[in-house]
């Protein structure tokens, strides 16, 4: 075992990369849940985004176009969730599961001819002088654009939810859809937009895995990241900045266990690999005491009877 092989600066830099898919998916799901909808299909939307982004990036040669395609792919899949839960008024838990099962099958089918293909590399930020600074350079100034976009998105979601009228309406719909409806807000329309936003974010999160983090395509490659993102929203008690904190925490665990595997720690690889899931459970247990911060109408079906 040689722990000195682990470089703390590179560890933090790769932690940020590992955290970004979870961050993107979780911030999208946070908006969805703030609107009172529980979409358990994050995993499905992520994996579909992963293959959409991958396929388009390979075919166009541009990872950025790939990310846009991934956002569209995720949003289109979430449209199915809209049809089920907002139009057909189906149970949200079951519909989310259906979305995940469907997404896993769809992505495997779409990705058949992309196994073993290498995607175009994503350009990293490179400011002469600044990116080369010791410690600060690799951590803050030498990532790809999507990572910074993820951080900006957290700030944007926080600001919109806290300071704007649109954010207030979204939260009102999530706290009491009947009251919001009585005030004349279009509950279904607002929720639909929130779900589409969540789908686009999850899709981009998935594409970040297939284009930047891994980068290649394998079936079922998201391996539960979508579910961890769902857990993260609970962990963050529906607060955007806490999502960021949580995502970095989980990113850190993932990267650390990979580093420990590489360093040859005397713990079997399988036990290290299960640690992110076990820690997710532990975190859920610790935080599930405080239930009050959940949107009051979360998971409830809205039907305007009059």
């Amino acid at each position: 075992m040689d722990l000195s092989a682990i470089n703390p600066v590179l560890l933090i830099a790769s932690l940020m990369v590992a955290a970004t898919p979870i961050l993107l998916a979780a911030i999208g799901e946070l908006v969805v849940e703030k609107a009172g909808v529980l979409n358990l299909g994050v995993e499905g939307m992520m994996i579909v985004g992963a293959i959409c982004g991958f396929a388009i990036a390979v075919n166009t040669g541009s990872p950025l176009v790939g990310f846009v395609a991934a956002a569209i792919g995720g949003a289109v899949l979430s449209l199915l969730f809209v049809l089920l839960t907002q139009v057909a008024l189906a149970n949200q838990v079951a519909s989310g599961l259906a979305l995940t099962l469907f997404g896993l099958g769809l992505s495997a089918l779409m990705g058949q001819s992309y196994v073993g293909v290498k995607p175009p590399a994503f350009a990293k930020l490179d400011i002469p002088g600044i990116s080369d600074l010791p410690v600060v350079g690799p951590i803050l100034f030498s990532h790809d654009l999507v990572l910074y976009f993820g951080l900006a998105l957290v700030a944007a979601v926080w600001a919109v939810l806290k300071f704007t009228r649109a954010g207030l309406i979204l939260r009102a719909v999530g706290e009491s859809h009947d009251a919001a409806h009585a005030l004349g807000y279009k509950v279904v329309r607002i929720r639909t937009m929130a779900i589409l936003f969540g789908g686009a974010c999850a899709g981009m999160g998935g594409a970040y895995i297939s284009l930047v983090r891994v980068p290649q395509w394998t079936e079922g490659m998201t391996a539960g990241v979508g579910w961890i993102a769902l857990a993260l929203v609970v962990f963050a008690s529906w607060k955007p900045w806490r999502v960021l904190l949580g995502a970095y925490l989980f990113g850190g665990i993932t990267v650390l266990q990979l580093n420990l595997q590489a360093a040859g720690v005397a713990v079997p690889v399988e036990y290290l690999a299960m640690s992110p899931y076990v820690i997710t459970i532990l975190v859920l247990v610790i935080l599930s005491q405080q239930k009050s911060s959940a949107p009051a109408a979360l998971g409830r079906i809205f039907h305007a009877s009059q």
């Binding site: 099962l101 896993l104 769809l106």
Partner: peptide
Amino acid sequence: AAAIDLFQGMLLF
């Protein structure tokens, strides 16, 4: 094989 997974997912939908 994935087409069958998709087929089963479709059924649930």
